[in-house]
Design a protein around this nucleic acid. Structure first.
Lengths: 257, 257
DNA sequence: CGCCCATTTGACAGCTTTCAAATCGCGTGG
DNA sequence: CCACGCGATTTGAAAGCTGTCAAATGGGCG
């Protein structure tokens, strides 16, 4: 499958294989999907809420966030997506976007027509199930965010986000969970955690003062992962990264604490 | 298909047909799924977080909620599920439950083995896509809840929940969106909205004082739907009930305002 | 009639927000 | 090489929404 590596869609295959795509012809079919490449600059819209969505995006590089805007103008960030992830399978499978997608940094996207994806899903059930599971993991993260925003105080919330980003950045390759560059500015962190940027700033300093993180510009270092995870009430199970055994919640590996 | 009506699984078919199951043999296959019936009393656990999930539940009657518990013991309700809905396709497709499910009232459940569902999904892509879409709608509701809990004040949040429940109760049949019996007590409302029961009580009275709702025990009457929807920043699009045209957000029908 | 859980109500504390303003970082142009 | 401009980060003080803690009231049921 070495020739697969050259396809712009390769990262999608890598992601979906975690969820069950194994047959060689499934791989070929996936990589043969029609698509177009596109660059989006930071802070530009990728998908607008309320519009009909005709393409699903594979994020090849950069970061985007999904968001909603409420009546008083406040923005709530719903999730952060990173390189290798399928963005907006959710919106595109339901026709009308119920939330917006915006670039955080400059991004490279591969756009895949929804009909092509649906057609593939109909012909190749294993691919359909893998994409389905992929959206279910997104869904699990949404659920955790409801609890995070709803029931944890500011410093716990923030610690939780730092852990989640660390785990996901490491999992998607390239970075270490205990040392990475924060892709969000403080206002974006605030909109993710339902806090004001001002309070994010103070809370960030609070974590630093407690020795839970070290900051150098946007670079975050986590000297004691377990301590930060504890402070953030973070248990990695909801990310479904597959490293934990399938047993009761008591059986989580040390790395997931 | 009159004989279908006798199957305990018929409500599932009704639900999935909205999302694309149309062929007669798909219907037959769905209704032929192996299953067992079970009654769960109010306040009893249906699924425990951290456990391996082997069955998906179809809720035939009653209400359940999904929830997470955070470090300080606080509970966050993630969603309310009502009769006719598939509960926990999410947990069961990902093996290990990342959240709990608990009965709000006495419930009748039909339990379907996950392997049987997966096998069906592999053989019948249309069924797989319909189930997928069904979970995507759940996901859309999670997203709205993140924004609701995160960025709206208590009275807006509560009005929003009242609208959502009204719409969904009407959609699932039997009740009217502007007059229904609240399935949750005030503590459960609080855990859904990330408020204390005390504050829910005050906020409920606040809506009543403003004439937005009328209460008689648990029965809620909404004299002016549009007014409550406005107060709750409620736009029904995220429920993907299919009544709205597939256009921009400007094209919502009056009933969805 | 009495018990128990859900609903109400009051007073006060507290975490976050608000509103301003200062400082910092860094790319750009003189 | 240094001044300028602008967004991001910090910091302070005060107000506000919601939580906390208690206790009273109400309704359903044995």
């Amino acid at each position: 499958m070495s020739e697969h590596l050259t396809s712009p869609l390769f990262p999608m295959l890598r992601k979906l294989e975690r969820w069950g795509v194994v047959a060689e012809d499934d791989r070929v079919a996936l990589l043969s999907l029609p698509h177009s490449l596109r660059i989006v600059e930071a802070n530009q819209a990728v998908v607008r809420e309320g519009c009909k969505v005709t393409h699903t995006c594979l994020l090849r590089s950069g970061f985007v966030h999904r968001f909603k805007v409420v009546a008083d103008g406040g923005r709530q960030i719903l999730s952060i997506q990173m390189a290798g992830e399928l963005v907006d399978l959710e919106n595109s499978m339901l026709d009308v976007a119920d939330h917006g997608v915006q670039a955080i940094s400059q991004c490279e996207l591969a756009l895949i027509p929804v009909e092509a994806l649906l057609s593939l899903a109909s012909k190749r059930p294993q691919v359909a199930v893998a994409m389905w599971r992929s959206t279910l993991v997104d869904s699990a993260i949404f659920r955790e965010w409801i609890a995070n925003v709803g029931r944890r105080d500011a410093s716990t919330r923030l610690a939780h986000l730092l852990c989640e980003l660390g785990m996901r950045l490491e999992s998607s390759g390239g970075r270490k969970r205990d040392r990475y560059t924060m892709p969000l500015n403080q206002e974006q962190i605030g909109d993710s955690l339902s806090l004001t940027a001002v309070h994010v700033n103070r809370t960030l300093r609070g974590l630093e003062d407690r020795g839970l993180i070290v900051r150098d510009k946007r670079e975050i270092t986590i000297p004691d992962w377990k301590a930060l995870a504890h402070a953030g009430d973070f248990q990695a199970g909801y990310l479904h990264l597959g490293k934990s055994p399938q047993s009761t919640s008591l059986g989580l590996p040390a790395s997931a604490q």
